[in-house]
Design a protein around this nucleic acid. Structure first.
Lengths: 220, 220
DNA sequence: GGTTTTTGTCACCATGTGGTGACATATAGG
DNA sequence: CCTATATGTCACCACATGGTGACAAAAACC
């Protein structure tokens, strides 16, 4: 736990809290520049401009650094930011604005995007924290939606949110490195608005088509 | 270029083609076990049980190894495998079966999944090759679809395939390490059939809802 | 004031990495 | 058969990595 001393004694040369912040800032910079796999003890100490033995002393471990960084507020966002307080006209409408907000929050956080992109390769506490927050968010979202709008008629809501959420997370993470995915631009806000137009259509469609059997294929 | 000698002279101790195959096999094993970032010259030579200088001599470089491996047939699949030869009853039907086939081909290839999962972190020729094949496939898919079914009415087909393709790729890659995503299981064939049921609904819906303005929101 | 703890600096270790040169010998060419 | 090339083995280099112990000085404590 970081003991945040409220007093600021000018410019103290020996300040643990200060160097801890320096280290965590360097973590963010390093993740952005070299990716999550580029964060090592030596590289981190070099980037922070401090001796690596301090990292061991204060955080014990690289995982300890990750854990400390994960508690930093700007790494993720609250569920309320996504769900919102005002009630939408319909469940479909709530989903549509929810996905938009989710994407916006993600695209604001390059470090988080970098971690998502590296989650398959590096299984650090940062990655685990992100996975946990995702699962927790999914559960809370389902609860909130059911409470406000009731269970949807014939729509598999968890599957739908998983698919669209996966697409958004993946595309947002990839957008840091590639300009186009499957022939579709994914860089600018305009590009994303195009994507969300299609997402809207899919959501609307899934809810409207659900009742009527557009395909009379059940079980062969 | 690998000179594949058709003759098999018993068990030759000095056979370049043979050791090249040994190296490429070791690449696959190493990617599966330690991920794409685990492939280094030393580790590769150790895994293959040969001297690392041979890797330099035969492939020049790690990237050369990747390039050679990318040409190996089983790393990806042809566009025809996805599009199929028989004409579906509708464009929506063709898309639905196309996505299913795509997912099936992906889930058959753990090495490809591992590369996809690492594509954000490591930008090796393998990753670039995958990206190229994806873009090329997207283009060919659009051409083939337009030629057979004509341009869809009011559906942004590139955006739709990009979104669903991204979701499938990402979930397939993640399934190698996590069991559940957003509260939805993504391991077994049954899990994927559930996902595809929702994908079907979204596709059907996007095509049926496209014409009628379910939301009278155009530009505020 | 003097003592103890904390913060920071430095040197060092074993190990792993990418990369190169020298050498032996098996194979192929004449 | 003799020679030249191809294949494989070995030793070595500089450097980076994760990790530890020893030590100086600044703060905090009494």
């Amino acid at each position: 736990m970081v003991t945040k001393t409220a007093q600021k004694p000018a410019a103290p040369r020996r300040d643990r809290a200060r160097t801890e912040r320096t280290i965590l800032d360097a973590v963010a910079r390093l993740i952005l520049r070299d990716g999550l796999s580029g964060v090592g003890i030596n590289a981190l100490a070099r980037e922070a401009g401090i001796d690596k033995v301090l990292i061991y002393r204060y955080f014990g471990d690289l995982d300890g650094v990750y854990r400390a960084y994960a508690e930093h507020g700007d790494f993720w966002w609250s569920v309320d930011d996504i769900i919102g307080t005002e009630k939408a006209a319909s469940l479909a409408g709530a989903l549509k604005s929810g996905f938009r907000r989710h994407a916006a929050e993600m695209r604001k956080r390059p470090v988080t995007l970098a971690v998502i992109g590296a989650e398959t390769a590096n299984r650090t506490p940062l990655v685990i924290a992100l996975e946990e927050v995702r699962e927790r968010r999914a559960l809370e979202l389902m609860d909130a939606v059911f409470a406000r709008y009731g269970a949807p008629a014939h729509v598999d809501l968890p599957a739908l949110t998983a698919i669209l959420g996966a697409a958004i997370d993946y595309l947002a993470a990839r957008a840091r490195q590639i300009r186009v995915y499957g022939g579709v631009e994914i860089k600018t806000d305009k590009d994303w608005e195009r994507l969300f137009t299609t997402v809207d259509a899919m959501i609307d469609g899934a809810f409207s088509t659900a009742g009527k059997p557009a395909q009379r294929k059940r079980k062969p």
